[in-house]
Design a protein around this nucleic acid. Structure first.
Length: 571
RNA sequence: CGGGAUGUAGCCUAGUGGCUAAGGCGCCUGCUUUGGGAGCAGGAGACCGAAGGUUCGAGUCCUUCUAUCCCGACCA
């Protein structure tokens, strides 16, 4: 592409709304324009990157037997009512009515539509397995879109869905997609980790996220220093040795006056006791039923783990009114004993490491001391309901966990029959018996992957694209725009490179040298071929590698081949 | 949804209640210049987010709305 005709405008200044490197640089490099909050135009330069990522995805999926389809963005409410998610999905689902007053939504994901599509065609086990995917725009009405393409409302996603005859076959599909994703992100030139993940509103009971490692990532990952264990902090478990104290059952419960001492910090300093000797009691509404969740004072409740342990749809902190009703006290004085309503109690197992503990008395301005969890509390369920922390022990080996920041660019889910059962996506097995298909679903945020690549690969001057997803692999830079000889030579290199199959750009704009050189660093072409009069006089040109900053002087007649070689080395 | 901040030209910013709203980047014309975002001269581009209000007079003060951004809550 000749840049003199390319729809491209770069900027020196940063719009004040852009805060993160990918957002700033995509704006400065003329890749995107904001149309509305969380909604962006993709200009030619960024669309080229998206197409390259999409093509890598297509190649990796097609060769594993997946087939591409395209589903509508607009979806009828009936399908969502069938799956139950019209009720559960919440305000992130953008809903609207047509002229006949019928309900529709913009698709945030396509489990319903694909399940409907497949159930119409699949009648026999002989037709399975099926694995279908699409690359298409999704809309999620995020509460707070931010960081440009990192968390947009409309974004481009590759979503895939597998249908198998049983769980064993479905897990093979899951494994295959896991391998495909590993291949995709490796080919995209990204440093990433696949981590155990919570399943959230999608449901199912097994999931991995693919996290691109970058300081600006919104997710926290814990991974073992010794083995391959890695998990999202929501899901991470630790090797817990809960040693139950010997002297239990001896402490005396007594009620103490603790006026206005509501928070853990206030209580610890008021009573001069360590936070781990407190039992924090949190009232949750889990699928509209109140629960008391008990964790140690120095820990935080992990809603994702609670949701998974109960197989619940929604875990929400209870409102003040509900807390007052079930505890009989103001917020801040809840405890597991003497609750006003007989609600279910979930105990994190680490509260059993101590005896003589402090908890709320379910009476405003009072706490209880001398509580022995083992003796005094009757839990509905005990388990791991807290977050793991860096430094904790790895659950699978002798190592410890360390923390990383990550950007979630892909996630794979084993769904089981959640959707196929609800929506009657059945087939006849070998015995003529009707069974629901066993499903998996698999997503890659294509536009987010582009942003994540920049978050991970940039410097003060601009973007440093991995070769495989760079908008152009190289740029030819004639530095003296008014010099016919230089321009002719540059054009010759450009033609040569294209004929060699290199995706090259020619910066033939009538601009000064500094302008072009700065633009080239900003846009982040992996290799620059600099054609300047001083060196051409000596029969040389310069090849610059963006990622290392290395410059090599090469003979004019060897320049195009040198560029191609360097690109091959960078891949 | 709670807390905070901000809306002045495509972008960044200035602007005590008082003349025709100022500057930089970018854009157009001409000249000059050409190895790290050049220089000079000239020019185009703004109903100052919207609607009300206070005032002799509002970009500036007040009210409401709206949009955007940040923190939190939330989130395949």
């Amino acid at each position: 592409m000749k840049l003199s005709r390319y729809f491209l405008r770069t900027y020196k200044e940063v719009p004040k709304e852009a805060q993160t490197p990918s957002h700033i640089l995509m704006h400065r490099a003329g890749m995107i324009q904001k149309l509305s909050s969380g909604i962006y135009n993709y200009l030619p330069l960024s669309l080229k990157v998206l197409k390259k990522i999409e093509n890598i995805i297509r190649e990796e999926l097609d060769k594993r037997g997946c087939q591409e389809v395209l589903m509508p963005a607009v979806q009828p409410a009936e399908l969502w009512e069938e799956s139950g998610r019209w009720k559960y999905y919440g305000p992130e689902l953008l809903r609207f009515k047509d002229r006949k007053d019928a309900d529709y939504c913009l698709g945030p994901t396509h489990e319903e539509v694909i399940t409907d599509m497949v159930r119409r065609s699949i009648k026999s086990y002989k037709q399975l397995p099926v694995n279908l995917y699409q690359i298409q725009s999704k809309f999620r009405d995020e509460i707070r879109p931010r960081f440009g393409l990192m968390r947009g409302r409309e974004f481009i996603m590759k979503d895939a869905y597998s249908f198998d005859v049983d769980e064993e076959e479905s897990k093979k599909s899951y494994r295959m997609m896991y391998d495909a994703y590993t291949a995709v992100f490796t080919r995209c030139g990204l440093r990433f980790k696949a981590v155990d993940a919570a399943t959230g509103a999608i449901g199912g009971d097994m999931s991995h996220e693919f996290q691109v490692l970058a300081e600006t990532g919104e997710d926290e990952i814990l991974s073992c220093t010794k083995c391959s264990y890695a998990a999202n902090v929501e899901k991470a478990v630790t090797r817990r040795v809960v040693v139950r104290p010997e002297n239990r059952g001896k402490s005396q419960i007594s009620e103490i006056h603790t006026p206005s001492q509501k928070t853990i910090d206030e209580i610890t300093s008021f009573l001069d006791k360590p936070a781990d000797s407190l039992i924090k009691t949190l009232i949750y509404l889990i699928d509209d039923e109140p629960y008391a969740v008990l964790v140690r004072g120095d820990h935080d409740a992990n809603e994702a783990k609670i949701q998974a342990a109960l197989g619940a749809n929604a875990v929400l902190p209870a409102d003040e009114e509900t807390v007052k009703r079930v505890t009989g006290a103001d917020v801040g004085f809840a405890g597991p004993l003497n609750l006003k309503e007989d609600i279910k109690i979930l105990s994190d197992e680490q509260i059993y490491m101590f005896t003589d503990m402090v908890c709320g008395a379910n009476k405003t301005d009072y706490h209880l001391t001398g509580v022995d969890p083992e003796r005094d509390i009757k839990p509905y369920k005990t388990g791991d309901f807290t977050f793991a922390h860096p430094g904790d022990s790895c659950p699978e080996c002798e190592g410890t966990l360390e923390t990383f920041r990550g950007i979630e660019v892909g996630q794979v889910f084993f769904l089981g029959d959640k959707y196929s059962k609800a929506m009657n996506c059945n087939f006849l097995d070998q015995n003529g018996k009707e069974k629901p298909a066993v499903m998996g679903c698999y997503g890659i945020g294509v536009s987010r992957t582009m942003a994540a690549a920049i978050e991970q690969n940039h410097d003060d001057n601009g973007i440093i694209w991995p070769v495989s997803i760079a908008p152009f692999e190289t740029v030819v830079l004639p530095l003296q725009s008014n010099n016919e000889e230089i321009n002719t030579l540059a054009e010759k290199f450009y033609d040569e490179l294209k004929n060699m199959g290199v995706d090259a750009a020619l910066d033939d704009r009538n601009e000064r040298a500094g302008f072009k050189l700065n633009d080239a660093d900003l846009i982040g072409y992996p290799v620059q071929l600099v054609v300047g009069s001083k060196m051409v006089e000596q029969g040389l040109v310069e090849v610059k590698i963006r990622s290392t900053g290395d410059r090599k002087e090469v003979k004019i007649e060897e320049a195009s081949a040198a560029v191609k070689d360097i690109l091959a080395g960078l891949k």
